[in-house]
Every structure is written in C-alpha cells, then in structure tokens.
C-alpha cells in the first residue's frame, strides 16, 4: 500500500499487516513511489476545492496535496484515466469535464512527464466519444500528450489478481501496467449497477474483459480490480454530477462547483458520495458496497470524520 493512506493511517487503523501483504504483491505500479507516503504526511488526506473555474479548482486541489511534482517525476510515463466513455457533451456529465482533464495533464507536463496518455476503453463509438467529450480538443497543445481509445485485446495484458475474491485475473491495458504513474480523473456520477461510478469503478475503463465483472458480482469485482490497478492520485470532477441516470445518462445533472483530490481512492470516492445528492437523496459512503468493501480490505479509508479534509476556495 505504498501511497494511498499514509503511514500514520496504517498504524491507526491497524491494517499494517494486510497492507504489507498487498504491497508485496501486485504493487508493481507503485513500488517506485513508496517514499511518497512519508512525504505526504504533512498534507491533507482529502482536498475539496470550490469555485467556478474547473482548471483553477483542479490546480488548487492538487497543489494542496503537494503539487503534481509530488506524484510525477521528470521522465515519468503517466496514464490519466478520465471518463470519456459516452458520446455526449460536458453538460451531460457522463464524461469528465475536459478542462479538469486538461489541468491535470498540463500539471503532469509541467512536472516533466515524458509521456502523458489519456486512455479509456469506451462504450460508445470511439469517434463520437473523442469528439463529443471534447477531451482531445481541449487538451491540444500539451507536449508529450496523447488521447486514445483503447480497444482490441492486443493492447491488454493478462494480469493476476492475487487477493481477488471474485476475480483471479483480468486483462489490463499494457500501457497502464508499464506506466510510472496512474491518475484517476473521474466525474461524479451515479451508476445503475455500482451505485456510483467514481475513481474505483472508473478503472474498469482500463480493463478489457469487464463483462465478467457483472457476472461475478460487480461490487466485489471492482474491489478486486483496484487491489491491482490503483491510482496514485485521484482528482474527482464535481463541477457537476450526474445524480441519476448514470452511467450513460441522460439524468439529473447537479452543479456542485467543486473538485476533490486525494492520494486515497477510497477516501476520494467516499467524499464524493457524501457531498453529492444521488437519486434525489443523500447517502453515506458505506452504502455503496464497493467503497465499503475496499475500505474493509485496507485499500483506503472510508471514515471521513477521522480524515484531514482541507476545504479551499479558488
């Protein structure tokens, strides 16, 4: 568990043993980053940046976690995973706001990333997704950046899930497995199967054989997946959320005018659940079972009241 909860958290929650086992296992993405936990000790667990400008909020939120340089070292290969699975525009809120994605990509570039890949295994027609999400257009001009739809099984590698409960193996995008840093940039949205689709559920866009997730039990499968592909940094687009009708919409879109950032995918997702209105009402994070199960497995923290949450206005 190199990055998500910091060292102090491990001790507090008494999950050191589990964490060690997990880190020794499929932590290939994260091994070189393990020093970050120590660095992050003085930073908040979760940042909530409020404002009107998606880019300013995103920058402020990441800066409050130590800036992108805390995550991306010069020469690093970075994969950014937004939501761009649907052929719909930013207003529909089924895809991440393109300006949030651009801000993250820009910061990676400033931190010296040698390659920044924005990837998603989309559901609608690739061209429609790329065009209507406006992500490629908006991100134009950022050096070393590519926005691509990943399809076709030659782009994926079979990867074991050592501690998987529902899944023992899955096919993950090779580029993700070979990357130095993985950043999740989901939009806050409801999901007809998983309750919500945030940073953890969003990782399914990096997996090829995801149909089986539904057959084996979606919620547990998501947790199995993120035990292997774990973003080091999560930036959740809460400029507006798709509060029902997700993941594809159309549904009720509610502006929240905020961006959440965290090193801890579970905490970030939990925070988004707590801040949002879903299907016309409020929920506790533990009511979303993949968030609860992920916390139980020590993949992150769900106890928001015990976390340092920093609110900023940009």
């Amino acid at each position: 568990m190199p990055t998500s909860p910091n060292r102090r958290d491990f001790l507090k929650t008494g999950l050191v043993t589990t964490a060690t086992v997990l880190a020794a296992g499929p932590g290939f993405l994260l091994n070189s980053r393990s020093s970050h936990a120590a660095e992050s000790a003085s930073y908040p667990d979760v940042v909530i940046a409020k404002g009107r400008d998606p880019e300013a909020m995103t920058r402020a939120a990441v800066d409050a976690l130590g800036g992108m340089k805390a995550f991306v070292k010069p020469g690093d290969k970075v994969v950014i995973k937004p939501n761009m699975s649907f052929g719909s525009g930013p207003a529909a809120a089924s895809n991440t706001h393109p300006e949030v994605v651009r801000a993250v990509a820009q910061m990676c570039s400033e931190a010296g990333a040698s390659r920044i890949s924005i990837l998603d295994n989309v559901l609608h027609s690739p061209n429609e997704c790329l065009k209507k999400s406006k992500i490629p257009d908006t991100c134009q001009g950022i050096p070393n950046l590519n926005v691509n739809v990943i399809k076709g099984d030659r782009l994926f590698r079979e990867t074991p899930i050592k501690d998987g409960k529902s899944l023992k193996t899955m096919k993950v995008a090779s580029e993700v497995l070979d990357a130095d840093v993985l950043i999740a940039v989901p939009v806050g949205k409801s999901h007809s199967g998983a309750g919500v689709s945030l940073s953890m559920k969003g990782m399914m866009g990096l997996v090829l054989d995801r149909g089986v997730f539904h057959q084996r039990g979606l919620q547990q499968s998501i947790v199995d997946m993120v035990s292997v592909i774990k973003p080091q940094l999560v930036v959740i687009d809460g400029t507006r959320i798709l509060s029902d009708g997700g993941p594809g919409g159309p549904g009720k879109v509610i502006p929240l005018n905020l961006v959440i950032a965290s090193r801890d995918m579970v905490a970030a997702d939990a925070q988004m659940v707590a801040l949002g209105t879903w299907y016309g009402r409020s929920f506790e994070p533990k009511q979303v079972s993949h968030i609860k199960l992920a916390a139980e497995r020590g993949l992150g923290r769900i106890d928001l009241d015990k976390l340092t949450v920093k609110n900023i206005t940009s």
Binding site: S85, G87, L123, H124, S125, P126, E128, S192, G193, A194, M204, R210, G211, H214, Q215, R216, G217, L218, Q219, P247, G248
Partner: peptide, 15 residues
C-alpha cells in the same frame, strides 16, 4: 455505433 457494446451501462441480474 456500438452504443450497447459490452454489457456496461446495463444492470445485470448479478448486480
């Protein structure tokens, strides 16, 4: 095209 590609976006009985 491909709007229903995959079972994603569809509630599965197992879910």
């Amino acid at each position: 095209p491909g709007m229903f590609e995959g079972i994603e976006g569809v509630t599965s009985p197992a879910d």
